[in-house]
């Protein structure tokens, strides 16, 4: 299972409302929870925060990929959030983050989990793609950028 199989318009939020890292992680967790993707909301948040303690998943060029191996899901799930103005996510380059891909996978899904993270790493290599995503007006536009035109 790759990125496209997980891509779901209902799990894309543009724009995100939160102004801080922790609030934003909660907002993404709540998005997943609202669509019935989580078995245990509190555990999901706890596992994502635990991973952030080891090192921020805020990368460079405004991209952040919060992720966790967690029993709070019974299948791999992904949501996407966009904060056009950027928020401080303690990113590696010190710049605000605007594109958020949250991936939660159960412990026995190592292979698919790695595959989806690799897909995201590949697609976000393109600065042009990242700019288009950051400027997307809504979830439909995000879907159009990834899916066949």
């Amino acid at each position: 299972m790759g990125f496209l199989e997980l891509l779901d318009k209902k799990l894309i939020k543009v724009p995100l409302k939160s102004g801080s890292k922790n609030m934003l992680l909660e907002e993404l967790i709540d998005l997943l929870n609202s669509e019935g993707c989580l078995v245990d909301r509190e555990l999901a948040l706890q596992d994502v925060l635990k991973r952030e303690v080891l090192g921020s998943t805020g990368l460079e060029r405004g991209i952040a990929i919060p992720h966790a191996k967690t029993t709070s899901v019974d299948r791999m799930v992904m949501c996407i959030g966009i904060a056009p103005g950027g928020i401080d996510f303690e990113a590696l380059d010190g710049n605000p983050s605007s594109l958020f891909f949250m991936i939660l996978a159960p412990p026995d899904q190592a292979g698919p989990h790695i595959e989806v993270l690799s897909d995201i790493a590949r697609v976000t290599k393109s600065n042009a793609m990242c700019r288009l995503l950051t400027n997307a007006a809504d979830a439909d536009e995000v879907m159009e950028l990834f899916e066949e035109d």
Partner: peptide, 21 residues
């Protein structure tokens, strides 16, 4: 797929401990 694991570390998506795990 060690290539993907290495790529994730290089992209700093994975920590070294995650790669090992």
């Amino acid at each position: 797929n060690t290539r993907a694991l290495n790529d994730l570390v290089k992209a700093r998506i994975f920590l070294q401990t995650e790669e090992d795990e």
